[in-house]
Design a binder for these strands. Structure first.
Ligand SMILES: [Zn+2]
Ligand SMILES: [Zn+2]
Ligand SMILES: [Zn+2]
Ligand SMILES: [Zn+2]
Lengths: 143, 143
DNA sequence: CTTGAACCTACAGTCACTGTAGAGATTAGG
DNA sequence: CCTAATCTCTACAGTGACTGTAGGTTCAAG
């Protein structure tokens, strides 16, 4: 009872190309092949791929996921390493939210202050042309 | 009084390669060249590049910036088009914040619920392996 | 005239995929 | 057994917005 790549994709909520990509970068191991060269997967692959897709949906990078999978494969290992990957990601998410909130405030100011007639007197254009019109002294790079 | 590419870069807070890249994609126009082939810029270029960098710092895409620049070049044009680009970007920023806040809640749950012993009983690993342990029914893709 | 910094082009790499072309494999129905 | 439809294969290009590198050329100061 093995699965074709398309079945695996449906089971785990991924695209076929994504699975091949994960194999290429060594995140999924190479499965057995049919005589004709098509990939055939065991149930185990569904678990692994689902783990990867869930972690991706939660914003972990493939590098972090690679590390998490390695840790998960060693069940009696201390889990502080796994926890600290998650905490590190959480910190990055918090930082991103903070940066985006600052952008949001600035954008709201721009949009709200424009009593738009022509682009020569547009607050949006003026603000982009002149950072002095911004409330925040500098903008953290996002992403 | 013309500027070399390095001087322009310092004046507008960009990298030299970034300026060449903007020229390549048609966002900055091709400047005059010295006899030896080096770029020489007018003051106007500082304004345009500063506009671009400021808009980038506020998270606008290069495509949006291209449109904004085109609008700004036509001063007696109605500015509703510019405003709606800004509003559209604001909406995207808000959506991103919402998605990230949802991730943040889930990550905090994972990290806080782990009374970590080994990876076999790690809440982080368990949650990644099983979406049923998540509070939110689905995760919006971020970025 | 020499030196060293700045500049040039062209290309590869980043991240995590997605899309395409053109060919071959598999499977269900007749 | 044959055919048609669907699936799969490899290989490569493209996305966005840059950044980095290699190997060579030009410029400006002393
Ligand atoms: Zn306006
Ligand atoms: Zn600003
Ligand atoms: Zn844990
Ligand atoms: Zn989940």
């Amino acid at each position: 009872m093995t699965l074709s790549i398309g079945m695996l994709a449906r089971r785990a909520g991924a695209k076929v190309q994504t699975i091949r990509y994960y194999e290429q970068i060594g995140l999924m191991s190479e499965p057995v092949r049919t005589y004709g060269g098509q990939r055939r997967y065991e149930e185990e692959a569904v678990k692994r791929l689902s783990f990867i897709r869930h972690a991706r949906a939660l914003g972990f990078s493939l590098d972090q996921i690679r590390n998490l999978l390695e840790l998960a494969d060693d069940p009696k290992r201390d889990c502080t390493a796994a926890d600290s990957i998650a905490r590190e990601h959480l910190a990055a998410v918090k930082a991103k939210i903070a940066a985006l909130n600052s952008l949001k405030r600035e954008l709201i100011r721009m949009v709200d202050c424009c009593n738009g007639t022509d682009t020569a007197h547009c607050r949006v254009i003026e603000t982009l042309a002149n950072h002095d019109l911004c409330a925040s002294p500098n903008h953290e790079p996002v992403q």
